[in-house]
Design a protein around this nucleic acid. Structure first.
Lengths: 124, 124
DNA sequence: TTTCATACTTACATTAATGTGCGTACTTCT
DNA sequence: AGAAGTACGCACATTAATGTAAGTATGAAA
C-alpha cells in the first residue's frame, strides 16, 4: 500500500472519519437485513417489507434511501400507477452484502452457543 | 444440514428470533469497534476508551457487558486498587471479530468510492 | 361501491441510545 | 494538598431512532 492509498483509506477508529457514516448505514438495525435480502435478488418495496420481519415502511424507506445514496443499492422506478419500484444491489453493494452475509451466517449458526453463554453468565 | 441442525439455526429475518439480539450487540455502534480493537490483542478499559474515538465510558462499559454476556469477550479483573481489568476475545469472539474485520476493511477501502457516490447522487 | 395493493411522505408520539456529571477508594505524582 | 489514573455505577438530561396514523392516485378485485 502506497502512502497515497493510505491517506485515502478510511479509519473507523477515528470518530471524525466519514467511514463511520458508512458503517452506520451498513450495520444499522435494518441496513444489514436489507442487504441480506437483496443479496438473493431484486425485490420490490413490499417484498422487502414482508421478508424482513418487524421493519416498518418508514424505516425501510429510510434505510433504502441511505443505501441508495451510498451507491450500494439501485432503485428502479417504473412509470406506472400504482407505483412499481425495484431494488437491487449494485456491484459495490454485492461486495458489502457478501461480507455482511459472512457475519450473518456466523451469528445464525453460533446462536445456540451464544444463547448458552447468556444463560450461564448472566440470567438477565 | 440435518433437520435438527436447521431447527437450531437462527433466522435473522424473523423479528422474534433471538439472533436479532446477537446481531444488535455485534453490529451496534460501539460493538463493531470494540471487536475490531480487541482483535489486535488484550486491552484494558482505558486503552479501549482511547483507541475508539468518540466512545464514552458509559457506552464502552455497556458494550463490553453485552459482549461478555454473549461469550465473545473475556473480562479478567485483578484484585488490586486502583482497578485493573483486562479484556480479550474468547475463541467465539475471535470468530466474530474475523468476520467483522472483513466488513470493516471493505468499508475503509471502499470509502472513497462511496463518498463519490454520495456527492453524485444526493448532495445532502 | 368498497377494499386492496403500490411506495412512499409527513406529522406527531413513544421508546431507545447516548451524553453529562458525580461518585467510589487507593496509589502515585506534582 | 491537589491532580491524575483506574473501571466502572448511578441519576438525570438530551438526542436519535423508531412507531403510528394519515395521506397520495390509480387500477384491479371483491
Amino acid at each position: 500500500m502506497t502512502l497515497s492509498e493510505k491517506v485515502m483509506r478510511g479509519d473507523l477508529m477515528s470518530a471524525a472519519c466519514p467511514s463511520r457514516e458508512v458503517l452506520k448505514h451498513v450495520t444499522s438495525r435494518w441496513g444489514v437485513l436489507v442487504l441480506l435480502a437483496l443479496e438473493t435478488g431484486t425485490h420490490r418495496f413490499s417484498q422487502l417489507r414482508r421478508k424482513i420481519g418487524g421493519v416498518s415502511e418508514r424505516m425501510l424507506a429510510q434505510t433504502l434511501q441511505w443505501l441508495e445514496s451510498d451507491g450500494l443499492v439501485l432503485r428502479t422506478a417504473h412509470d406506472v400507477v400504482p407505483p412499481h419500484v425495484d431494488y437491487c444491489l449494485t456491484p459495490l453493494g454485492v461486495e458489502a452484502a457478501s461480507r455482511v452475509r459472512l457475519l450473518a451466517d456466523w451469528i445464525e449458526t453460533s446462536l445456540p452457543e451464544i444463547a448458552a453463554n447468556r444463560a450461564y453468565r448472566r440470567p438477565d
